[in-house]
Amino acid sequence: MAIDREQLLHVAHLARLELREDELERLEGQLNDILHAVSKVSELDLADVPPTSHPHDVVNVWDEDEPRPCLSADDALANAPEREGDFFKVPPGGAA
């Protein structure tokens, strides 16, 4: 399966990456090489094999729903690029 320029731009948008033209050119070839290599997984007929999402047989682990100490607003905002009061400040609109 090869990825063309249109798909590349679609995937970049899904990943919220604004790629420059020179990056798109480089990535198109590299991604096709990588996808060709990883497509090898389709050689195996695994219709009856269950998927493994995790190395352990994990079961859900639930916490008691009890209040406990957490980060203060100031700590949580300490690394904010921009802050207004107790909020992270971002440019307006446009989010898809």
């Binding site: 990825i3 798909q7 590349l8 995937v11 970049a12 899904l14 990943a15 919220r16 990456l17 604004e18 790629l19 420059r20 990056e23 480089r26 990535l27 590299q30 991604l31 990588i34 996808l35 990883v38 971002v90 440019p91 307006p92 609109g93 446009g94 989010a95 898809a96």
Partner: peptide
């Protein structure tokens, strides 16, 4: 950036190097 989507996309383009971008693209695909 003047608006939010542009801020996300430009931040990630300028902030990530080539290898994370490659893996984000492969993984997203």
């Amino acid at each position: 950036a003047a608006e939010r989507l542009e801020m996300y996309e430009r931040t990630r383009d300028e902030g990530f190097g080539d290898e994370p971008k490659r893996r984000i693209m492969v993984g997203t695909y």
